[in-house]
Amino acid sequence: MNKKLRYFKRSIPFYIMFLPAFIYFLINNYLPMFGIIMAFKNVSFRDGIINSPWVGLTNFKFLFASADAWLITRNTVLYNVVFLVLGQLLGIFVGICLSEVRNKKAARVYQTLILLPHLMSMVIVSYLANAILNENYGLLNRILVVLGGEAINWYADAAYWPYILTIIRIWASIGFSSVIYLSSIVGINEDYYEAACLDGANKWQQIRHITLPLIKPTTVTLIILGMGQMMRSDFGLFYLVPLNTGALFRTTQTIDTYVYRALMTLGNTGMSAAAGFYQSIVGFLLILGANWLIRKLSRELALF
């Protein structure tokens, strides 16, 4: 007991340092969380959230009542898995490439440019995507025709869209993830590489035996956190980029677009809270599971 107390005492500076963030999250995130109860109520704001009548799980019904409920969940999860895996692989790859560019000016130019897509809103991206995919004047069809092929109506066939959306997503996020990986690569002690060099290790061996193992914590963390977002999707990517085209729903409809379309005319606060809660609780369980698993494998790498 005394030992514990001593630890507490010694940790006081750390608690003080944590305090600003603690207060911030309390105000910004935890205080408003009482709003979650709206998921179980028939909300009328004039009566107040508390006085609105309880309706049990009624608000959740619309998420599962549709014949497409399974399809929507499958789409959301599959896209997320693909984005997560590809995002890490390419993020690491590009991060390493960036770190190998030793010309400082060139490195800065590259870093600036690959972050450009991250700055564009999905509205703009949807127009730019159309510049490529438009049936009549799109770049892709023009190339196809020059090569002797037939112009394709990209917005009419759902089969193309898993690839199109994945490419756009990777294009938009690669700058972000590679810069994160770059920062942890840059943090690797140069001594390791020098020692390896003296031992005659070539670049590839250095990458394999030094860089990759040392960025593992970052990768593991990003994957655990990614599990929490499994049921969420980038609304702009799935709604705006396919131009809200009905024919593409089979491969572009996700939970978020479904909820948006469902509640467009209803404006039902309880139902949208229910959808959010559903996404959160599944993400929560996945994150707990992932963390538990990692903890089993390597105590140090677990988040909590």
Binding site: F62, Y258, A262, L266
Partner: peptide, 12 residues
């Protein structure tokens, strides 16, 4: 509300 929510998606 549930039926409208589902049908809205079909209409879309």
């Amino acid at each position: 509300a549930t039926q409208v929510a589902v049908c809205n998606n079909v209409v879309e």
